[in-house]
Design a protein around this nucleic acid. Structure first.
Lengths: 257, 257
DNA sequence: GTAAATCGTGCACAATCGTGCAAATTGACG
DNA sequence: CGTCAATTTGCACGATTGTGCACGATTTAC
């Protein structure tokens, strides 16, 4: 790597900061082979532009406004963030993921491990936008006619694209989870999700408490097809036992401290 | 190696820059056996044309920033809004439009006539998100692997999707407009745009003032293939006359009150 | 409380920059 | 072939920028 030009060095540092990475003055000095004084000057300049926060030993990225994601999550924000954080632990480096539309999966983008060579496929416009802003993620957009209710594509074109892919992990948003498995309220939505499950090596379902025990008309997957159900601590032991008895493979309870 | 002619030297430097190669003033001076002053003059000229970025010690290639599109509207915001408002006048009810990625087209979403039964196709993630928020528009997402520089899909999958459609109007973002027509800085981007032009009944190019007169490496469309060029009042009469003489069909000057 | 690490500042030095100007080169035209 | 205008070039000059070092002040760790 030729990072000899002063400007390239500053740009590289700025890019890392913009990527939410904290930087250390000593490490940067060694990496770019200049004195720490030069690095300190860079960091001071960046901080003066408001592009980072100066701290003892280096600099920290500016905290992005906590609003955009949180606002969209709407009700049950806390719960969705907990589910997302827990589910992210199951992801391994280099995998190809599918994120179904839904605010919980939207939250998941924030918790995907950094620089893990992950590729994210999604049919959701908003999730695609969120992934695009993470420069360490590769993005595959599943196209088609967008459904305004879903906020993404679930038509035949989208299904066809899904059929041709093989995901390591698929994260499905279900409208209902019961002993019958996962189900959705809309026909096309369910059709699309079935295609995703069929193309995924491992299927994860993140369900907020109100979804557990509900039943919906259109079948997505049986409990046996779900590799992991992620729920909050609000789900009773009885409910979990009932799902276990009906064939659920594994359940992860998020946020039980 | 006989690269003694000044023009050859400049072209060689420009080619390297277009190839994403950083150049050093000192090294170039030694290589071409001229004084650094001459090289500096070349680099200054290139930078003035917007073909590179001048830095201490040499010059760097232009790298399109991956900032969210909405934020990029910031620079030249007024001008882009004017262009978008003017271009929207050419749209008729019921049409199928294509909006190429680019901040000017992003602005155009706001000015699309309401409740005109319009359908918008786009390969840009951010534009898709904007269209989705307008409940009176139908949205078609062009999928594929997303290019982080473009903020959308321009790969073979995307081209294939475009080939199968027929747009009433296509709005193309060009990196450069000259007597040679419209051109782009990146090969894949140009390939994709060519496919769009081929699938469109009418092609519109919205160009901010700094794009007019610029030249870029990869050809998109000749002036005859462009049905309407929309520019700001900052473009001189000479420039417009020159384009007219070269075969431009129509030009719309936005914001000349 | 003490020691080590880090910080900010002032200063010297080298590299690079922009500008003005005169000489050299180029290319068009008769 | 000769002339002239435009372009290009190299050089000198002062200004700017980037760097490293020394010094004392500040912060952190134990």
């Amino acid at each position: 790597m030729t990072k000899d030009h002063p400007t390239i060095r500053r740009d590289t540092i700025a890019a890392r900061l913009a990527n939410q990475q904290p930087v250390s003055a000593t490490a940067l000095a060694a990496e770019f082979d200049v004195s720490e004084d030069a690095i300190r000057r860079d960091l001071r300049a960046l901080a003066a532009e408001g592009r980072c926060r100066r701290v003892y030993g280096g600099a920290l990225p500016i905290l992005p406004d906590a609003a955009p994601l949180a606002a969209r999550l709407g009700e049950g924000r806390e719960e969705k963030l907990r589910l997302a954080r827990a589910a992210a632990l199951a992801i391994r480096p280099g995998e190809l993921l599918f994120l179904d539309s839904g605010s919980t999966n939207m939250a998941l983008v924030e918790f995907l491990p950094e620089d893990a060579e992950l590729t994210v496929a999604t049919n959701s416009v908003d999730i695609a936008a969120a992934v695009l802003r993470r420069q360490d993620l590769r993005l595959i957009v599943v196209g088609g006619v967008a459904d305004p209710l879903v906020g993404g594509c679930i038509d035949a074109v989208a299904v066809q694209a899904i059929v041709q892919m093989r995901f390591d992990c698929a994260f499905i948003g279900a409208c209902a989870i019961s002993e019958d498995g996962a189900a959705a309220d809309h026909f096309e939505d369910a059709t699309f999700k079935r295609a995703v499950v069929a193309s995924a090596r491992r299927t994860f379902v993140l369900a907020t408490d109100d979804k557990v025990g509900r039943r919906a008309v259109h079948h997505i997957a049986s409990l046996r097809q779900i590799d992991m159900l992620v729920v909050g601590p609000g789900v009773s032991d009885d409910q979990r036992a009932s799902l276990d008895a009906a064939g659920l493979r594994a359940v992860m309870v998020a946020g039980r401290d």
